[in-house]
Design a protein around this nucleic acid. Structure first.
Length: 753
DNA sequence: GGGGGCTATGGGGGG
DNA sequence: CATAGCCCCC
């Protein structure tokens, strides 16, 4: 027996331990799904700290803020509270925090506003109008994504014009003036003291690039150990920033990237796997580790995932394997319509909860588009199953919440024209559209913000008094902001802007809901002010300003919101599910034109990415995986009939439950045997029941002592029936000591004569 | 300046 | 199906 005590490194397998303890020089970790990536990251950072590295010198970039928080908490369990001093967060949130200290160096106010996608589109839309361009040709959304793509590739407006490829593409798409819109948009944002999401990266780059002495060197010294999770989803610009922080004279190149090319699913926002190849080129002395053992999922799931991803050509060679050979095969459910799909998923959830003793939180429904959540919500409500929908319209994107926030934004940064336009006539104070247009035009002509126009120019039209009142109001808010904390200001604004008064007068159910949202926004700000959790480093710990609050919520996603009810079924997009795991996963809507999305099918080479997304979705499952599709569904007002997804065909029968084959040409025969899940751990074969011969009995006839047949469990004996119509039944194929509690109102049972 | 009703059109993923 | 944008009327 060794005298050396237990070490946290003992909890890792060989390759994990090597990856975690190789802390000098560049490291690349290729981590398959469920391969203990988070564990490696956690122990790597803990190891660094135990070796004497100061926590504040470690920068860990994660994909979500929640992932960062979870990671810090795990590290804390190993090294104690100093773990909280590690710089951990998303690229966007950490850079936003740095820019809040440094932005003045590159011409922005430190209290800059963050423009969300709506703000951006609205600015672009206004520019397009002013340029007299056709909004059908120059659709603001399309223009925005071109600009976003340019920024993600570090292409400035000047560089855009001389980029033949971009210009040729725009010309071909009959949008040759995008570069001009881009230029004007950038100028507008600067004038408004606003950064969009891409700017948080781009301006961070500029800051470091243009200030080598004062700033870059400071952060190079500060952030000596870089760890980048989900590196496959970083874009060119993000990588260039990482290089500015890492590559310099005397650097030890302590950068560790962790990723999986097979899980790259964000190319639509500029992510490129080229970064992995480039990394090998930029750091030739790097050490590579491949984590190939999957600890998450059973063999059927791992094998199916391998089968699917094998259809992609370009990938880093690896073989994901598991030793969890027990388990249930993958179940495919076919439904006639989207409603039936919802019903059958809800039924299966009830069944799984009963049979496998699952809680709601063990279960997730994953879909390709957020719009698919509705039918599942309806069916889960019918059964009174608690659920939570992630994504879609988040709290902070509700109109009334945005309205109040716009007042706060304007109070903090009066150059924020988008906020000003939102509130100048809300609640109505008689400043109409033409007046607002006039103000916007004056602002543009004189290169002023709209607020400057309001305060510096004498208005002689009939809006004059209204404008004066509005200016007085905002000035009062600004005065209040000087001497109060975030909650006091917000409360003051809510009361004095007229928003609360307006909402109170609306007695409809929706109106009450809106009022509740305003109250919970204020509660949220109060909580923010009173929260004593340590954040990042001391310099920023005590910053409870309204400005910090606004920044925090701009970068917050649904997943970052605290859970009110911890035991809920999770409904989310396959994208949002990245990094998560559940005992039972339903991947729904597996149809051509939906998953894979028709956008991917029509625009050519995006099938591989859809397949990676499907790969991500199915590898979230630990034990039970159910794939569903509907023959028809309502899409955009009309009934659509889609073929089953090609991805279903890529899983071979040996990993599929029952004998379902999908023959596209011949239609889709009913499966011969409906699901025959085995309970986890059971080795007994199930009795299968042919649904064709099955006749369900009236639930009221089911009495104790009867022999019954259940479509999924096979034959069994009814032990008891209670007043809620819940029957206790012992099934022949299952563990005889373990009765199943079947809800008769849902289950269909045939009585054996 | 404000509100209501009609028509055309979009159509994904998210920080 | 949703909703943005438009026109028309008060």
């Amino acid at each position: 027996m060794s005298e050396v005590g237990y070490s946290y490194l003992d909890e890792l397998n060989d390759i994990q331990r090597q990856a975690a303890s190789c802390i000098d020089g560049p490291v690349m970790v290729i981590a398959g799904p469920g391969s203990g990536k988070t564990r490696v990251l956690t122990y790597r950072i803990a190891h660094l700290i135990n070796k004497g590295v100061i926590p504040g010198n470690i920068l860990a970039l994660t994909f979500t803020n929640k992932a960062a928080r979870d990671m810090k908490d795990r590290i804390e369990r190993v090294v104690g509270s100093k773990a909280q001093r590690v710089w951990a967060g998303t690229f966007h949130s950490l850079f936003a925090r740095i820019l809040r200290v440094e932005a003045h160096r590159i011409g922005y106010p430190n209290d800059f506003t963050i423009y969300d996608t709506d703000d951006t589109k609205s600015v672009i839309s206004e520019i397009i109008t002013q340029m007299n361009l056709d909004k059908k040709v120059y659709a603001p959304g399309v223009v925005r994504s071109r600009i976003s793509a340019a920024k993600s590739n570090l292409i400035t407006p000047k560089a855009y014009i001389i980029n033949d490829e971009l210009m040729a593409y725009d010309k071909m798409a009959r949008r040759p003036l995008i570069h001009l819109i881009y230029e004007k948009y950038a100028a507008r944002c600067l004038r408004a003291g606003a950064m969009d999401f891409d700017d948080l990266l781009l301006q961070m780059f500029r800051l470091l690039y243009q200030n080598p002495d004062q700033v870059r060197e400071k952060y190079q010294r500060q952030l000596q150990y870089l760890i980048v999770d989900d590196f496959q989803d970083t874009n060119y610009l993000q990588y260039e920033i990482l290089k500015l922080l890492t590559i310099y004279s005397g650097s030890r190149n302590n950068i560790c990237i962790v990723g999986d090319d097979a899980q790259s699913i964000y190319s639509f926002r500029g992510a490129t796997i080229e970064n992995i190849l480039q990394f090998e080129h930029d750091f030739p002395e790097l050490q590579t580790f491949k984590l190939e053992q999957n600890y998450r999922s059973t063999q059927f799931i791992v094998e199916a995932a391998n089968e699917v991803i094998h259809h992609n050509k370009r990938q880093i060679q690896k073989k994901i394997w598991t030793d969890r050979i027990e388990g249930n095969k993958i179940k495919i459910i076919k439904a006639a319509t989207e409603t039936e799909e919802g019903k059958r998923v809800a039924d299966t959830i009830i069944e799984q909860k009963n049979r496998f003793n699952l809680q709601n939180k063990d279960i997730a429904i994953l879909y390709r588009t957020n719009g698919q959540s509705r039918v599942f919500e309806e069916q889960l409500r019918r059964y009174n199953i608690q659920y939570r929908v992630y994504g879609g319209l988040s709290f902070y994107s509700r109109k009334e919440v945005k309205d109040l926030i716009a007042y706060m934004r304007l109070t903090i940064n009066d150059k924020d024209d988008e906020a000003l336009k939102r509130v100048i006539n809300y609640p109505r104070r008689g400043i109409g559209e033409s007046t607002i247009d006039n103000i916007a035009q004056l602002a543009d002509d004189n290169d002023l913000s709209m607020w400057e126009v309001l305060t510096k120019i004498e208005f002689n039209n009939r809006s004059r008094k209204s404008i004066g009142d509005f200016v007085t109001l905002i000035r009062a808010f600004k005065a209040k902001a000087v001497k109060s904390n975030a909650y006091e200001i917000a409360d003051y604004i809510a009361r004095n802007s007229g928003i609360i008064e307006l909402l109170k007068s609306d007695k409809s159910i929706e109106g009450l809901g809106r009022m509740e949202n305003i109250i919970s926004l204020l509660d949220g700000i109060k909580e923010f002010v009173e929260d004593d959790e340590i954040q990042l480093n001391e310099e920023m710990d005590k910053d409870k300003s309204l400005s910090t609050f606004l920044q925090t919520i701009s970068l917050m996603t649904d997943a970052d919101q605290k859970e009110e009810n911890p035991d809920t079924v999770t409904l989310m997009s396959a994208h949002s599910a990245k990094g998560l795991e559940f005992k039972s996963v339903f991947v729904v809507g597996l149809e051509e034109n939906l998953f894979p999305s028709y956008m991917a099918l029509s625009e050519g080479n995006q099938i591989d990415e859809e397949r990676r997304l499907f790969y991500v979705a199915i590898t979230r499952a630990e034990e039970l995986l159910t794939l569903t599709y509907a023959n028809s569904r309502y899409q955009y007002g009309s009934m659509r009939y889609n073929d089953p997804s090609r991805f279903l065909e890529e899983i071979t029968d040996k990993n599929l439950d029952s004998i379902i084959s999908i023959h596209k040409k011949e239609g889709f025969p009913e499966p011969k045997i409906l699901g025959n899940f085995r309970p986890l751990g059971s080795k007994k074969p199930m009795i299968s029941v042919n649904p064709g011969d099955f006749v369900a009995a009236d639930p009221k006839q089911i009495k104790p002592g009867m022999e019954v047949i259940h479509l999924k469990f096979g034959q069994g004996k009814v032990i008891s029936v209670d007043e809620r119509m819940v029957a206790s039944i012992v099934f022949d194929g299952l563990d005889e000591n373990q009765d199943k509690r079947i809800m008769l109102q849902f289950a269909k049972l045939q009585i054996v004569e």
